[in-house]
Computed example of a mutant assay.
Amino acid sequence: MENKLAIGSDHAGFAYKEMLAHWLRDNGYEVKDFGTHSADSVDYPDFVHPLAASITSGEFERGILVCGSANGVAITANKHAGIRAAIAWAPELAELARQHNNANIICVPERFVTEEAARDIVSKFLNTTFEGGRHKTRVSKIDC
């Protein structure tokens, strides 16, 4: 399941979602695209909720969401128990989100990062492991 990823976006993240999905497939990942499928204006919860549910159900371990600021998709995804969606605009933030928070969704703000940075963020997210230890205790206290 480690090579299976969920990906989704709204219209403001559509271009980077497409770029990232193609790049991930070229690098051996199986990617399920939860949409959107064009740059036409949409409501991001329509795509975020199914993606988050696919992670809470165990279909996928991790997901990638892209929107203009990453705020809306992160807020929506984090409404699901068991989801730890983190916004990252630098690879170091993605690394810390994995190491310390066991983030299972990374949220990329298309309007604020380059394509290269987006790939670096996703790469760091996918290649960093959770440290556990004291962080495991903290993460276990997140869900109400």
Rank of each mutant, 00 (worst) to 15 (best):
T114C: 10
H37T: 15
H37R: 14
A39D: 10
L96W: 13
R138S: 02
P109T: 13
E116I: 15
H135I: 00
P91I: 06
I55V: 04
T76C: 05
A70E: 01
H135T: 00
A15Q: 15
F130C: 05
D43W: 04
R62F: 12
N104E: 03
I87W: 00
K141T: 06
A81C: 06
N101K: 04
S69F: 05
A39P: 01
S123K: 13
S140Y: 07
E92T: 10
T114E: 03
C144M: 10
A117T: 05
I106E: 02
S69E: 07
E115G: 10
T114S: 11
E92H: 10
H11M: 12
S41G: 00
I121F: 06
G13Q: 01
G133N: 04
A94V: 09
R84T: 14
N101F: 06
E18D: 12
N127W: 08
P50E: 03
R84W: 03
N78R: 08
N71M: 15
Y29M: 11
N27I: 14
T128D: 07
V73E: 05
E18M: 14
R111C: 08
R134A: 04
I87E: 03
G68I: 03
T36C: 12
A97W: 12
L96S: 10
V113M: 01
F60P: 13
I106G: 05
L96A: 10
H11Q: 01
C144V: 10
S140L: 08
E131W: 14
V139R: 01
E61A: 12
F14A: 07
N27P: 00
C107K: 00
R98N: 05
G133I: 00
P109Q: 13
R84S: 04
V73P: 06
Y29G: 09
V48N: 02
K4L: 15
V122S: 04
E92D: 12
L126M: 14
N3V: 13
H135F: 06
A77K: 00
H22K: 12
P45I: 05
T76K: 01
E115A: 14
G133H: 04
S54C: 11
F112V: 09
V73I: 09
A90T: 13
F125L: 12
V113Q: 07
S140R: 14
H100I: 10
I142V: 12
V42F: 09
F60T: 09
T76P: 00
D143S: 09
Y44G: 03
D26Y: 04
K79T: 11
Y16R: 02
S38V: 14
L5M: 14
H135E: 02
W89R: 08
H22E: 12
L20N: 02
I55D: 00
A6H: 01
R134V: 02
S69P: 09
K4T: 15
I142T: 01
G68C: 08
R84L: 05
K32Q: 08
H100M: 10
L65A: 05
F60D: 07
I83L: 01
E131Y: 08
A85C: 00
I142A: 06
C144D: 14
